[in-house]
């Protein structure tokens, strides 16, 4: 599509100084060249895109979204597991607490029982000791009464003797006893 009129230099759209005459866009000499190379470029891009690049990127994107979906599912599963573990842990904690309470109560009851037994034993011992002491006191008291009686009897006897009377022991004893009761 070369123009027949032009010189050896470029084309009719360029002046002698190499500047454009009018709009280069409208220069008919250059149009077929651009159209041809544009079509070559477009066909090249189209084939590279449709044969190589687009299927590849599409596959990568699909694979990625698949991976993400899987990962999310796995994460969900792990989360459920964690929740399960937490529930189990809490249950164990509650059980342990209940067990501890039970043990504490048992121990308390045991101690209480032991304490009661000990207390009873101590009470009995105290009672026994008290009784013993009371007996001793009674004995002492009785001893004292007897001593007093004896002394009284002896004194009476002596008094009677000193006053020139004589009395047998039986009479004196009876008299003293009667007096002492009175």
């Amino acid at each position: 599509m070369a123009t027949e009129t032009n010189d050896t230099v470029a084309s009719a759209c360029v002046d002698a100084g190499g500047s454009a005459l009018g709009m280069p866009q409208l220069c008919a000499d250059w149009i077929p060249n651009q159209i041809f190379w544009l079509l070559v470029a477009l066909v090249a891009i189209y084939f590279v895109m449709s044969r190589i690049a687009l299927p590849r990127i599409g596959a990568v994107l699909a694979e990625r979204s698949g991976t993400i979906t899987n990962d999310i599912a796995a994460a969900e599963e792990l989360k459920n597991k964690a929740a399960e573990a937490e529930t189990a842990y809490e249950k164990a904690l509650v059980d342990a607490r209940a067990e501890a309470h039970k043990i504490v109560a048992e121990a308390k009851a045991e101690i209480q029982a032991e304490l009661d037994v000990e207390l009873q034993k101590a009470d009995a011992q105290i009672a026994a000791k008290t009784a013993e002491s009371e007996a001793a006191i009674a004995e002492i008291r009785a001893g004292a009464v007897k001593s007093v009686t004896d002394v009284a009897k002896a004194t009476t006897k002596e008094l009677v003797a000193a006053m020139g009377g004589s009395a047998d022991a039986k009479t004196i004893t009876a008299a003293v006893s009667a007096r002492m009761k009175g």
């Binding site: 599509m1 050896t8 470029a10 084309s11 000499d29 250059w30 060249n33 159209i35 041809f36 190379w37």
Partner: peptide, 10 residues
């Protein structure tokens, strides 16, 4: 510097 044919590399 030749003319621009449809196939010319420009």
């Amino acid at each position: 510097d030749g003319p621009v044919h449809w196939y010319t590399v420009t």
